[in-house]
Design a protein around this nucleic acid. Structure first.
Length: 152
DNA sequence: GCCAACGTTGGC
DNA sequence: GCCAACGTTGGC
């Protein structure tokens, strides 16, 4: 059982958008970084825990708890020439980008990034290291436990 | 809007 | 395979 933190820009898909989706489920499309892709494609299993993180907004932070709801499959946007995620080098036969589905478990009161920084238990989190830009990162089980039971 | 950090591209 | 140039991310 692994745990993950996945960033989304709320202007694109917010926690409230997710709550309104059918089955409260969304395809995690648009990842165009190989490391993040590999996490989804090679390591994620259905049922694993996800911290749904809001980035690129006024108050970045953890906005909800979710779960991995599918194994990885080809990201449909890579084939769509009108999508900003279109990749001319990808083909149906050899897709380059993959995504899983993510399903809401529960919305929580936002845990701002500024608060995460105050907890020594979390000081090693990938998201808190300077220069971190990866949109999907593994979360240590102890960190997950602390966040879900003490902060959420 | 700024800027540091980092990933990708492409010429050589 | 190196590395400069460029593009993107994301907090502030």
């Amino acid at each position: 059982m692994r745990y993950w933190l996945m960033k989304s820009e709320p202007d694109d898909v917010s926690i409230d958008d997710l709550a309104k989706m059918p089955k409260q489920l969304v395809a995690w499309y648009g990842v165009r970084n190989y490391q993040a892709r590999n996490f989804m494609r090679d390591q994620m299993s259905v049922g694993e825990g996800v911290l749904f993180y809001h980035s690129g907004c006024a108050i970045p932070g953890i906005a909800g708890i979710a779960r991995v709801a599918s194994v990885a499959y080809p990201d449909a946007t890579q084939f769509n020439s009108r999508s900003k995620y279109f990749d001319p080098k990808a083909t149906q036969e050899t897709p380059r980008w993959f995504n899983v589905d993510v399903q809401l478990v529960k919305k929580i009161n936002l845990i701002p990034l500024s608060e995460l920084h105050t907890h020594p238990q979390l000081e090693r989190m990938r998201i808190l290291q300077r220069g971190n830009r990866l949109s999907i990162t593994p979360v240590d089980p102890a960190e997950w436990q602390f966040i879900v039971t003490q902060l959420a």
